[in-house]
């Protein structure tokens, strides 16, 4: 009768039970946190193709951006000119008369002032000539001394220029490398879109070589397609529709999620796709 279990059951076993239950929950929580911390995050890599074929689709956002900027500038200029023209006729006749009188008065005052100035100048010239002679002698001595120091300075300067040029070169190289990686990312992104769209594009029987439709698509950073609109029709409605359908079926382009957001905004936010069959027999 007198064994350990019976001792444990004293006070109906409440203290032991409480300790057991609380420690059990602590253990479960710790295990949860531990396993969560050790879980390796899954990373989706953007596969970069080594060869990029631009067969069907041509993507050129840079040119489009430049065009946009040019258009905006022209619009601004137009606006400025218009506002200027609007202001012009508002001046009344009386104001113009006043203006003319004021101009005449100013002209007279200016002539008198010039007269006075000329006399003062003559006096000043004479004094200056004397001072010049003295300074000439001083300068001669100074010049000899400067000649020597300048030679030294010249050498130092040349060295500095060399160094600066070297630094500049390195900086340019780094920038170039950066640009290359960005260019590569853009290339791989466009190649991916191109491949996906190409896979889903089923051309209608009415498609002919030389047909050409341009679609403008807008995307979200998640790779989802917002809209696709035909900016340049091929002239064949079926062909246009097939191009549009291909883009909608190929979306979303989930792999674009891994691109840096600024790069995405610059290059993929809106994109023009050119659909142009070239491999047909006729």
């Amino acid at each position: 009768m007198h064994n350990t279990l019976d001792n444990v059951v004293i006070y109906n076993g409440y203290p032991v039970s409480i300790v057991a239950a609380v420690s059990f929950h602590c253990m479960v929580l710790t295990a949860l946190v531990y396993f969560q911390a050790n879980r390796a995050p899954q990373v989706l890599n953007l596969v970069q193709p080594t060869v990029v074929k631009a067969l069907l689709i041509d993507v050129n956002p840079q040119v489009r951006n430049a065009q946009n900027l040019e258009r905006q500038r022209l619009e601004r200029l137009d606006q400025q000119r218009q506002t200027r023209e609007e202001e012009l006729p508002r001046e009344s006749e009386a104001e113009r008369e006043l203006e003319r009188e004021r101009a005449a008065a100013e002209e007279r005052a200016r002539q008198q002032a010039q007269e006075r100035q000329r006399q003062v100048d003559v006096d000043a010239l004479r004094q200056q000539q004397q001072a010049d002679a003295e300074r000439q002698a001083r300068l001669e001595a100074e010049r000899v001394r400067q000649e020597q120091t300048r030679a030294q300075e010249e050498q130092a300067r040349l060295r500095q220029i060399d160094e600066a040029r070297e630094q500049e070169r390195q900086r340019q190289q780094a920038a170039q490398e950066l640009a290359i990686t960005e260019f590569e990312l853009v290339q791989s992104g466009t190649a991916l879109i191109q491949q996906l769209v190409q896979e889903t594009w089923s051309r209608p029987p009415s498609a002919r070589n030389g047909m050409r439709a341009i679609l403008q698509i807008r995307m979200l950073p998640t790779g989802e397609l917002v809209s696709a609109t035909i900016t340049e029709s091929s002239g064949d409605a079926a062909f246009d529709r097939s191009a549009e359908n291909a883009v909608y079926r190929a979306a979303p382009f989930r792999e674009l999620q891994t691109l840096p957001i600024n790069l995405f905004n610059r290059n993929f936010r809106t994109l023009s796709l050119i659909f142009q069959p070239e491999d047909l027999l006729f």
Binding site: V8, V9, N12, G13, Y14, V16, S17, A20, V22, F24
Partner: peptide, 12 residues
């Protein structure tokens, strides 16, 4: 927690 206290206590 309370139900586990009861479970252990009842078990004992």
């Amino acid at each position: 927690v309370v139900s586990w206290v009861m479970i252990t206590q009842r078990w004992l």
